[in-house]
Design a protein around this nucleic acid. Structure first.
Lengths: 226, 226, 226, 226
DNA sequence: AATGAATGAGACTTCATTCAT
DNA sequence: TATGAATGAAGTCTCATTCAT
């Protein structure tokens, strides 16, 4: 019966001590749980993932997980919310993104993919459960009625960007922004997923490919992009 | 203890009575189970799907499922194999498919999507577990070591077609046939999935869109498509 | 779906046609079931023995078993009753058995062991469930409240014989007839069981050993046997 | 959902507090499970014994049984191993056992029977499954391939002792040590089993009877024991 | 009458969740 | 507060029994 003081920290906290030590410790545990959960959910899926698997990977006890989350479902939800919030942030337009739609898209996607590289296990989970909507009935079932707030935001951002593209005459209007968003995610998934699974290469290096395939594929008929 | 003579038949058998009654009955039950299973797997995912759900939807007893399949896993496997075999058949080149790569692709995809319209619940399952490979760790986990034969075949066919496209100079070689295959499936999924979930429209009507988006998106640099 | 006319007969009926053919056929099935059941009960025990195992070994359908016996338990009961009746018959005193207690015992046991050789699988079952009483709580549980009539008779016969031995001054009175009966069965089991399991040798050849060991072991203190 | 602190303790622990409390608690539960299991296996046999029966008798939850044993089968195995180890210990020759074979045998058996009195339910189980080998096909089936180590040891000890008796000229060589061992166990079982089932008397008081019956029954022809 | 597929009660086993330490 | 053993609800699977053929 080992009483560990703190969970395993692969990336130890580099946060300035602005937080009360107690809360910081709390945050450390929460982070460790979520990191472990991302890996386990990815490897086994939500249902096959046992709380014990998560606890073991986080090097903490099962009971501790329940000190931070009410139910298993909440771990997934927290995972989605936390990281999706980060994605929303990165997907926002940035000053240096260039004027053309393609350049803007590449900038935004690039930041997302950089984040993906830093948090691979999570990303696979988020693609499955959110991003543009649950990718399967199974995923939807796990979330039951709950609509994670950040995921909704991210989806709206993606759709809004697609609408921009249509308005600017670069994306073909026929498919509509929602479907275009799905196509974008489909291409993204296709081109970055194997890297994820195989564990080689960087997703961010595929940003240009994703943009090119998506843009050409979804270009408006007489697309003239300078 | 009610002894039902036959399971629910949503689409009653239109087969001529060329088969021995007993064997026919057996086939009827098996089919009913697989049809029910496709729906339940789609709605809840493999893990959350209870044998009882499947049995209830097929209007049979729980034990009956086990008269036809050794384990729950085998139901999924049989489902994948049976329908994927049909997909392989439809994905084969057909005489009237037209000469250009695009025309051939559209013909092949069209037949697949027509099949999808006839067997919607199944298709979502096959996309998740197979088509071009398990779409998530969860899916891979369910199949454990087992590699469904037909799914392997279908994947090889898709990849081979992509290779043809590259050889003919219509698809860009940089991504390679496997990645191109993933892109195709990604686009297919994106453009037909909502129809599946919403239950409206026909997937087959999207064939042209899928082909267009994919072909343009994956076109070789100096592609000259008449 | 094969419709067999009659079950496997290892030892086909050598009975004169004194019985109505219909009843004869019925008896043939019943016998086949009991023979198969003896083997299966021996190999796996009552609980682990599936009706299907019995049916398969008898080369008949499961349903047929239920045409002859109401429940699984009744198969065991019938098995015990039928063969135990035969044992009771053979255990009865016979004219040519010799005058001394030892000679009489050897005669009686010899006939029992000869029967055992002809019906090995059954004998192991009867030792477990009856002979002198259920040999374990498990066996008693299977029989629930039911006390097979013939087994009770056999037990009474054994005990009566032991009482004779005591009365004649050859068996020591201290243990009492019931315990002596148990000792006899214990020795019998010990000396014939391995032959049963290994399948070699004849139990009947052990009769003299059983009698010798039992008689010497249970002899009255100043036993003077001519 | 009641959380009991400790299982029923019929014989509360008389151990000095030398052990860490947690480990002690663990041992308490394991012991309670094994004690309960011995009774239930005795009363109903392995197959008819439900985990729930064992849990109820131990006054613990069903799941708790699985915290201590992987499968039902392992409960039986642990039961056999633990107690058989104790039997092996007691069956070993002891300094004060007297010189003659009979005296030595009586000493050894006496210790075994004293143990039996202290652990009646278990003893019946061990006679059924082990001691000198599985007493029925059913018992052998339950153990599948597994050969409990301690039971093998005990059997070897018994056989070795029989061989000693033969070598010393007190036991008749014709039957051989294995068969003699079986006879010994058969007599033992016969003379102590009813006490077990009826719950009256002490097995240890039968030691002399067992030895006498066995020794006289299995004596070498011209046995002259000083 | 024989057959074997259908049936569902019931048993084993897993695992989310609780709570004494 | 962290811990991990205890708990029982729930799911998979088996198999005695029924009954349409």
């Amino acid at each position: 019966m080992v009483h560990r003081v703190s969970p395993a920290r692969q990336s130890s906290s580099k946060r300035p001590a602005l937080v009360a030590p107690r809360d910081e410790a709390k945050a450390v545990f929460k982070r460790a749980i979520l990191e472990a959960a991302a890996v386990v959910f990815l490897e086994r899926g939500f249902h096959a993932a046992r709380i014990q698997d998560i606890a073991e990977r986080a090097r903490i006890g099962v009971g501790t997980v329940y000190n931070h989350f009410e139910q298993k479902e909440d771990v997934l939800l927290a995972l989605l919310e936390e990281h999706t919030a980060a994605l929303v942030e990165r997907f926002a337009a940035a000053p240096g993104d260039g004027p053309s739609f393609g350049a803007r898209l590449e900038g935004r996607l690039g930041r997302i993919l950089a984040y993906q590289d830093a948090h691979r296990p999570f990303f696979a989970v988020v693609i499955d459960y959110g991003l543009i909507g649950p990718s399967s009935g199974a995923s939807a079932m796990v979330l039951k009625g709950r609509r994670p707030r950040q995921i909704d935001r991210l989806r709206r951002e993606v759709v809004a960007l697609m609408a921009e593209g249509i308005d600017e005459g670069v994306l073909q209007p026929r498919l509509g922004p929602l479907l275009l968003g799905r196509v974008l995610v489909g291409v993204l998934r296709a081109l970055t997923q194997d890297a994820l699974l195989a564990g080689e290469g960087r997703a961010v290096d595929r940003a240009a490919d994703v943009v090119e395939v998506f843009m050409k594929g979804s270009a408006a008929k007489r697309s003239r992009q300078p």
